[in-house]
Amino acid sequence: MIKLFSPKKRLPVPGIVWGIIFLIIFFSIIRPAKFPTLYNALLILRHSSVLIVASIGMTMLILVSQIDLSVGSVMSLAGVITAVCAESGMPLGVSLALSILVGMLIGVVNGTMVAVFRFDYWISTFATMGIAAGLALVVANGQTITVRSDFFNWLGNGKVLGIDFLILLVAVLVAGMLFVLGKTRFGYNIYSIGGSAETARLSGIDVTKNRMFVFIGSGFFSAVAGLMLAAMGSSASPIAGADYSFDAIAAVIIGGTSFDGGKGGLAGTVLGAVLLRILTLGLNLMGIPPTWQKAIIGVVIVAIIVNDVLGERRRKTNESRRVYSNV
């Protein structure tokens, strides 16, 4: 007889949720007057939302064992393109579309180098990172540009039924991508390629094409994130996105997607981004300078990786024991 679907399906609380709860309690005790406020909760959500969108592409990339270092500069570039175009009288919609198109174009360039020509992804996306960053400076002429559009401002700060439009947008994007990753052929292919590119190839999956799509997706989401960031401040700085490549990678890893590939997913990334932003805000409130914050976040990542590796080892040992009884 076949034993189908074991009924005992415990939903384990992932470690990251404990991490978030711990941080909230920790900062609430250290800064009881400043940290646990509704204002801060909203602030964290708004700031997380940009990072979440910037990390969607990175999640897919790390799932297929790649990385895109150009995320941050594409964000900056997208912001300044829209700002410059809108200020020169182009309709806002067209400017936004143009920015997103440029983002996707950079994705095509990355994908061509990495997926088609098999260049190393570090070098390839490092190059496009430099190109996009340079272009952003050129386009903006090295300056922060204010966007005097009410609609643009509304995109970043307006509310629908009392909820920030940005947060709604992120919810829709995340829900959409959760669906794509979990339920569609494209999503299945990503997990298969991540698990083993060779196995995927031998199973008839077009690895090159799917990797290409992932890079284009990364460009798309980077551009959208850049536009969100610009809209929040109604202005675009050519270095606005500078820290985001690092933060996005951090969010993905903290969220449990591993470089081994094929393991993890977007839900974890969302939590990872939130955790990162709680950490940033808390450290700010404690008066720790941004330079130190980076180091601290680095330590957190190392701690998480160490914990992951140790946990995996324990599991493996236990598994080899477990198999024993039903050899």
Binding site: T184, Y191, S192, S196, T199, S203, G262
Partner: peptide, 26 residues
């Protein structure tokens, strides 16, 4: 040639997963 992280079902159908009727790609 298997994907260790994926289920047996996902491995059996890798690259040729059945789609929902009338919903290509899903």
């Amino acid at each position: 040639n298997l994907l260790p992280e994926r289920s047996i079902a996902q491995n059996i159908f890798v690259g040729k997963e059945p789609e929902k009727k009338g919903l290509p790609g899903i």
